[in-house]
């Protein structure tokens, strides 16, 4: 190699290294937003009777809490539905941030915790009494641990994608979900049923919406560039 080529090459190397070490700009991909809705009559959610745990019964005495299997919002919308890329996924980044799953007032906060495989999460007991955390996976390893008040958070993660119901045997009404996904492209519908998945590189995707009572719905979406697509998932609800 002749010496006169060396400097330009060196410069190119230097610049490219510097560029690579700069913070990655948010992927300028497309966005899918939309709502999760239902038709028909959804089951009436029951008020939760927490009489056996006086601490919690007192906490919710003024405004009773209801079961959260089907949480409806204005305009026939559904909360706590998980929308995620189920096929054609590309450009996912691994989940490294530690998520938090809280037990407060004998309820799970959040009701649905979505995470990626191998993403760490901590389970916290904010109540003045004991809870046991019993996730019921079928593929991942199962465990069942109790957490006395005032003890450090329990750390956990799952290495296979799965939808895992979570329960507390001490307070059988307590019910939540660990949603373990292979993709970082997911969203959980808010109290108005809306969701938004950002940063999808151009491509053809299958989006699936999952609701614990009504099952799943899938739609295909093609993202061309930095566009925003709007889609609506509609579940059929039965009263019982």
């Amino acid at each position: 190699m002749k010496i006169k080529y060396f400097y330009p090459l060196f410069l190119v190397l230097l610049v490219s290294t510097a560029l690579a070490s700069l913070p990655v700009p948010p992927p300028a991909g497309g966005t899918v937003t939309g709502k999760v809705t239902y038709t028909g009559t959804p089951p009436k959610m029951k008020p939760i009777d927490m009489a056996k745990e006086p601490n919690c019964a007192k906490e919710h005495a003024a405004s009773p809490v209801f079961t959260e299997n089907v949480v409806t919002g204005p305009g026939n919308t559904l909360e706590w539905a998980v929308v995620y890329v189920s096929a054609g996924d590309q450009g996912s980044t691994p989940g490294t941030q530690t998520l938090r799953f809280d037990q407060k007032g004998c309820q799970y906060m959040p009701h649905v915790l979505a995470m990626q495989v191998d993403q760490p999460f901590e389970i916290v007991n904010s109540d003045p009494h004991l809870h046991n955390i019993h996730p019921l996976p079928k593929i991942n390893p199962e465990w069942n641990k109790s957490q006395p008040p005032g003890t450090p958070p329990l750390m956990a993660k799952y290495d296979k994608p799965e939808f895992i119901p979570v329960k507390c045997n001490v307070h059988p009404w307590m019910h939540g979900w660990f949603i373990v996904l292979n993709t970082s492209h997911y969203a959980i519908s808010g109290s108005d049923g809306s969701f938004s998945i950002k940063g999808l590189p151009p491509g053809k995707y299958t989006l699936t919406a999952w609701q614990e009572q009504f099952g799943t719905q899938a739609q295909d979406v093609t993202i061309a560039g930095g566009e925003t697509k709007n889609i609506t998932f509609t579940f059929k609800a039965l009263p019982y």
Binding site: T67, N69, Q213, Y240
Partner: peptide
């Protein structure tokens, strides 16, 4: 289904 409040296993449908 304790999560949905059906502790006894009733079948209202």
């Amino acid at each position: 289904d304790e999560g949905s409040g059906n502790f006894f296993g009733l079948d209202p449908r």
